[in-house]
């Protein structure tokens, strides 16, 4: 799919996401906008029907729900139930196994990569062949279990596993560099046995695509799992949210919502 088409999808998804958060008067807008391009790239461009995506940063659930709905993996009407009593679509992805595109509910950080590695590792025994993608946050990279899974994936050369780190530099209560610095992140993943590529502008489709292609190409030769470090912007596309930790939590006022929609629709 052309990047211009992806940009149009991005605009539509972002508008939907803002509407869902606004109607619910809910937070976690920043994280959803941070990884929106990552999720669109995966679900519209990269993933084949048999491929699997685990969103380890479950707090970006609205981003995931929206992309699944826009890509035909979830009934778009169900989005209207988001955050309401009796919904399947809570603030974090469901654990009910009812939605095939969401094999695992997430929300507590540090689970996604192990789950993804387990699914990828299964292919040694089932003979199936598909790619498993796992989207991690900065916070995920604080968790010891993430690095246990990275050790396992590297050791077992899980070439069918691709990690995408939504590295926006912010986490729950501070900047990652102040809380528990992860740098040099590229070297860390490489030393764990991954084929690493950096998308310098992780909210730009062309950069994501180039990083994925380079990593996949290298992994074919090296038999390593892949890791894309996407240098993203939390709250991307909404000027007053960008790189602001508080937009991990805050809901929008009416005025803020109107401004966010305007900026999103004008977004290139």
């Amino acid at each position: 799919m052309e990047n211009s088409n992806l940009s149009q999808i991005r605009r539509e998804c972002a508008t939907t996401i803002l509407g869902l958060y606004h109607r619910a008067h809910a937070g976690h807008i920043g994280p959803s906008l941070s990884c929106l391009e990552i999720l669109i790239d995966l679900h519209f461009k990269r993933m084949r029907p048999e491929d699997v995506c685990i969103l380890s940063k479950g707090h970006a659930a609205v981003g995931l729900y929206t992309v699944l709905a826009k890509s035909g993996r979830l009934d778009p009407q169900e989005l209207d139930t988001y955050y309401k009593d009796g919904t399947r679509l809570a603030a974090h992805p469901p654990c009910s196994r009812e939605i095939p595109a969401i094999p695992f509910g997430t929300g507590s950080l540090g689970h996604g990569l192990s789950l993804a590695a387990g699914i990828a590792f299964s292919q040694r025994y089932t003979g199936r062949s598909f790619q498993v993608y796992c989207v991690l946050s900065d916070g995920d990279c604080n968790e010891g279990s993430t690095w246990e899974a990275a050790l396992f994936a590297g050791h077992h050369a899980l070439t069918n596993l691709t990690v995408v780190v939504d590295a926006n530099g912010l986490q729950g209560f501070g900047a990652t560099c102040d809380v528990c610095g992860l740098e040099p992140l590229e070297e860390k993943w490489r030393s764990f046995g991954f084929e690493v590529q950096v998308a310098k502008h992780g909210n730009v489709f062309a950069d994501l695509d180039a990083a994925h292609q380079a990593a996949a190409c290298a992994a074919q030769k090296s038999n390593r799992p892949q890791c894309i470090i996407a240098r993203t912007i939390k709250g991307h596309g909404v000027s007053y949210m960008e790189n602001k930790m508080e937009w991990h939590y805050l809901p929008m006022s009416e005025t803020q919502y109107q401004q966010a929609v305007q900026e999103t629709e004008a977004h290139a």
Partner: peptide, 26 residues
């Protein structure tokens, strides 16, 4: 044989790994 896997001293990973494998029908 290869169905016996030493997952290392990483119980958290081992349990979630198993959940992922069970999701695939193992």
């Amino acid at each position: 044989g290869t169905r016996f896997v030493n997952a290392g001293v990483s119980e958290q990973n081992m349990i979630s790994l198993a959940a992922g494998m069970a999701q695939q029908g193992l």
